[in-house]
Design a protein around this nucleic acid. Structure first.
Lengths: 110, 110
DNA sequence: TTAGTATACTTTGCGATTCTAGGTATCACT
DNA sequence: AGTGATACCTAGAATCGCAAAGTATACTAA
């Protein structure tokens, strides 16, 4: 069975993470699930991609994190969009839109 | 002047090259110009990206090349889509479409 | 003729990022 | 006690686009 391996394109992960957080804070594992759900199971983020990405993103000041207790009773690190992160999300979405537009143009140009 | 630097996302270049070639053979430099034109100047491929990519793509059998004399009188290496390359283009376009769809879903999911 | 510009190909090395694969630990359920 | 889901982290490999440099030819303008 040739399973379609839907690797993410490099550069899209940050946008997905920021987008996942834009309606409230989540912990890392929850971000993966949220991206999965919202995309109708089409996007899957590996843990080995997510956690380093979250670290990078936090270094850049786009999210802030704090350890807290999840409702299930387990410790988890919760991430929240910062104001700067919200702006970055806009930038990345605009950039994404431009690329999609450009590729569409190229493809439609018969 | 904040010039928007529209870097390509990693993984899209092959598709663009194959697409540029799907209406006839071109030489390397011409591929760059074609992608530029067809995308309304929105996409620019650097030579340092293109030539290694062409090498990779030829290794995979998606294009074939031959040296020939350009109409300007200069030697140039002309690339042509192979049958396998045409199939690969379909695969990559489908994959691109899936990704765009998934990202759209994620973004529309308020 | 000589300088500059556009064309045309190649190569090296960098930087950034995703994935694989492993590890640790907790919790619920059987 | 064992399994599976949850939750975090890290190291290493692999990929790929880009910047920068080099080589060379053709055309044009001073």
């Amino acid at each position: 069975m040739a399973q379609h391996k839907a690797d993410l394109l490099q550069g899209t992960l940050d946008m997905l993470i920021l987008k996942a957080l834009c309606h409230g804070e989540l912990h890392g594992y929850g971000i993966i699930q949220r991206i999965r759900q919202l995309s109708d199971e089409m996007l899957h983020v590996e843990q080995g991609s997510l956690y380093p990405a979250l670290y990078r993103i936090e270094q850049k000041g786009w999210v802030s994190s704090k350890w807290d207790v999840h409702e299930t009773g387990r410790d988890a690190k919760f991430y929240k969009l910062t104001r700067s992160g919200r702006k970055q999300l806009e930038v990345e979405e605009a950039s994404w839109d431009r690329l999609v537009l450009a590729v569409n143009k190229l493809r439609q140009a018969t």
